[in-house]
Design a protein around this nucleic acid. Structure first.
Lengths: 353, 353
DNA sequence: GCGACGAGGTTTAGCGGTAAACTTCGCTGG
DNA sequence: CCAGCGAAGTTTACCGCTAAACCTCGTCGC
């Protein structure tokens, strides 16, 4: 037990393995083994005695010491890229992922470090500097994931379609979701539709949703020229601006598929503000099924992702790979794509006129 | 430089202080001093040489080793209580706080550990086990904060009104916000109003808002019997249920003040669903000014908190206290209350009839 | 009767850093 | 002319824990 002077002149108590060892009359290693569940080499009597003393003394393991000695920290980092203003991008999505990870990992004795990444090199640096056991990438652009060179720990990338074999992608069936949206609008009778999403490169999440959407529309007989796409960012406000200008900029369009519920809700607000009605004048369909989607008026029809499953899956995979003692992705694990489904509320109806 | 066999038979490189020291022909301590900016005792020439080698070798400090040796980790933990299901409570609020903290602290060389707390004893354990430098409590009930016994590191409690002198509270002017809401409704002519918020004990955030609201209503001449309160939780769905039953359960009420925008939006949705109109039949006013509040129809009139300021303030205080080398709150630092203001949108109007 | 073996430990040698005390040496002031 | 000092390092000791090798019995098979 180490007694240290306190700010108030009192003492602070820190129990170490050696304190327990002294009191139990055994070596430090024996105590260490008991504490870590490696009890094969310790007699039941000793185990009980050690555990009793540890409990009485309020032993709490020292994480840095353990990390240093074992070269493994029991930490999984949630890495999130930072924007221009150097602040973390915290969408509801990120939140759900990071919060869910913490819950899942805590139950398995792991911890979560939340870290913003300014430059991709920091990923490898963080892994080394912290002796991380695993990494989950949230909201990383695929091109950055492609370039990562981390091969000592498992790397799980949420919503990634990166070709990097070391990064295990966990995402929803974005292509299928796009198809569901396209089919829903076409089935309702819409002939001129618009896809609204952020600019994208390659076949990432947005590209997949667009591809699926377009495919379903064309399959339903829409004219390729009548299946448009418009680039907007993903905030409410971007959506609102699109909604305001919709009638003017896209006069013939009777339905919009937005790649995110934020965007969709913004679009609905913009349309209403401009004097239009949803779904009377324009139908709107979103993607995600965020909690507020059913509390708008009308409720937002949207493609629901199973976020809890996505997070659970990501957490499960990191842990799994850690236990396997795997370097990132060397087992060639397949990416995971989770099912999505259409949630019908009130924002899609027949085309006007 | 340590070369370690790799999964692929390659090698992995880890640069340590001693590698730099060897190459520069100086001692490890000199390198350590250079790296930590304690350069007073090192000649400019040596500093430059060491920095050059460090950069070339890609030196990354080992955090656990540093934490162990210095008994200080440069980690600030964001501690969040867990609910019954043992999962982290991640409200938009939590998110903003944790994300903002990360941004702020990263720029000062600190890191953020996100951890769910199942039992209050874990707070002190976490502080010791990780050699934490500081703690920020998010969404902790005041009674739990009252009972905390952590006196070695600064403790900042978001939205706390706890009497624990060691916990520095950072919150908005909840009482003032409540008054603003009450005055706004009374000024609009409402005579029977309702306060909707979660059950509360003592004078925490909810208690303050209620007190301020009630006070302003009474000051405006409303009958105390006509200033009601109803207990609901804070989700959209809780609000919706209240909105659905509002006309039936509270027939004379013409305006509702909800302690959270979630709740307020849910209430509006419920009222609309029951065939009522906002603000025609009932006025609704919220608290927070979350991003979606201006995209509902009508837009939500609400009391805006300055979240970025709250987070910045909390981060600033922890860092400040850490630099001061202070144990928690021993400087008797005053709690901080941030200004709020009324954001007028469309959900408040004159009473019906 | 003794070598092998397994149970139940102990010992040794770090992990990569840091704090604090100690050294060396050229200057400087009285 | 030398005690004293500051600049620029170096040395020593240790942070708390763990992996891996080593030790010491009692027992068991042949």
């Amino acid at each position: 037990m180490r007694l240290e002077p306190d700010a108030d002149g009192g003492v602070r108590v820190t129990t170490r393995l050696s304190d327990i060892a002294d009191e139990a009359g055994v070596s430090v290693m024996t105590v260490s083994n008991v504490m870590n569940g490696k009890r094969a080499r310790v007699s039941p009597a000793t185990i009980e005695k050690v555990l009793g003393i540890a409990a009485r003394l309020g032993y709490v393991p020292n994480i840095p010491a353990r990390s240093l000695a074992a070269n493994s920290s029991h930490i999984v980092a949630a890495l999130v890229p930072v924007g221009e203003n150097n602040s973390l991008l915290v969408s509801p999505h990120t939140v759900a992922v990071v919060g869910g990870m913490e819950t899942h990992l805590r139950h398995h004795g792991y911890h979560v470090l939340l870290r913003g990444i300014e430059h991709e090199d920091q990923v490898a640096q963080t892994v080394r500097g912290w002796s991380l056991d695993g990494v989950v990438l949230v909201e990383f652009p695929d091109e950055q994931i492609d370039r990562l060179r981390v091969d000592t720990v498992p790397l799980v990338a949420i919503d990634s379609y990166s070709a990097n074999p070391r990064a295990i992608g966990v995402r929803s069936d974005d292509d299928g979701g796009g198809r569901l949206a396209g089919k829903r609008l076409a089935d309702a009778g819409h002939r001129r539709v618009l896809f609204a999403g952020p600019p994208y490169q390659g076949m990432g999440v947005v590209g997949q949703r667009w591809a699926g959407f377009r495919e379903a529309c064309l399959a339903a007989g829409l004219d390729p020229d009548d299946v448009g796409a418009v680039e907007v960012l993903t905030s409410f406000e971007d959506g609102r601006r699109l909604g305001l200008r919709l009638r003017h900029d896209h006069p013939g369009v009777t339905a919009v598929f937005a790649t995110a519920d934020h965007l969709a809700v913004g679009i609905m607000a913009g349309i209403a503000e401009a004097g239009g009605s949803v779904p009377g004048d324009v139908s709107v369909i979103g993607f995600d099924d965020l909690d507020f989607a059913r509390y708008t008026t009308p409720g937002l029809t949207t493609i629901a992702q199973n976020m809890p499953a996505k997070v659970a899956e990501a957490s499960r995979i990191v842990l799994d790979e850690i236990e396997r003692g795997a370097g990132a992705g060397d087992g060639g694990r397949e990416p995971v794509a989770l099912d999505v489904h259409l949630v019908e509320r009130g924002s899609v109806g027949p085309p006007r006129g």
